[in-house]
Amino acid sequence: MLEAFIFATILIGFFGIIFKQNLVMKIISMDVMSTGVIAYYVLVASKNGLFTPILGNKENINYADPVPQAVILTAIVIGFSIQALMLVGVMKLAKNNPTLESSEIEKNNTP
């Protein structure tokens, strides 16, 4: 059931990128899609267990895989920096264009 909600989140973000015309909404949709992908990786990493792999006296405990967790931390940082860079690009476009609709920007900037 949780996987279905995660895939729905990914699809909502994907369709938002395709069908929304406003550039800010496209950026938000991309962020929603990346959140779904990150949630899916966290779900995959926790399939074997929920405990962190720290040395201790307990044996026969199913540990969560730490490699996807490290990859996800990197993906979160990279996603944040890409989102900030895209928002700066949209701010630059907003100075020269009266609207942030992608079709209107294409009409105004085609030779």
Rank of each mutant, 00 (worst) to 15 (best):
Glu101Gln: 13
Ala94Trp: 00
Asn96His: 11
Lys95Arg: 13
Lys107Asn: 14
Phe80Ser: 12
Ile78Val: 11
Gly89Ser: 15
Asn109Ile: 11
Phe80Val: 07
Glu106Tyr: 11
Thr99Gln: 06
Gln83Pro: 04
Asn97Lys: 00
Thr99Asp: 04
Leu93Cys: 06
Lys95Gln: 12
Met91Ile: 03
Met91Cys: 04
Thr99Arg: 00
Leu87Trp: 12
Met91Ala: 06
Ile82His: 12
Asn108Val: 00
Leu93Arg: 06
Val90Ser: 05
Glu101Pro: 07
Gly79Lys: 05
Glu101Phe: 06
Asn97Glu: 01
Leu93Gly: 04
Ile78Asp: 03
Asn109Trp: 04
Ser103Trp: 11
Val88Phe: 13
Glu104Tyr: 06
Lys92Phe: 02
Asn108Gln: 15
Leu85Gln: 10
Lys107Gln: 13
Val77Asn: 05
Leu85Asn: 10
Ile82Gly: 05
Phe80Arg: 14
Gln83Glu: 13
Lys92Gly: 10
Ser102Arg: 07
Ala94Val: 00
Asn97His: 08
Gln83Trp: 11
Glu101Ile: 07
Glu106Ala: 07
Lys92Asn: 05
Met86Asn: 04
Ala94Glu: 00
Thr99Phe: 05
Leu100Tyr: 01
Ile105Ala: 06
Phe80Gly: 11
Val90Lys: 02
Ile78Ser: 08
Asn96Gln: 07
Glu101Cys: 04
Asn96Ile: 03
Leu87Arg: 02
Lys95Tyr: 10
Ile105Gly: 01
Phe80Thr: 15
Gly89His: 06
Lys95Pro: 00
Phe80Ile: 13
Val88Ala: 02
Ser102Phe: 12
Leu85Ile: 10
Val90Pro: 01
Ile105Gln: 05
Ile105Phe: 03
Ala94Met: 07
Leu87Glu: 11
Glu106Leu: 08
Ala94Cys: 06
Asn109Cys: 06
Ala94Gly: 00
Asn108Ser: 11
Ile105Thr: 01
Asn108Ile: 15
Gly89Asp: 02
Glu104Ile: 02
Ile105Leu: 04
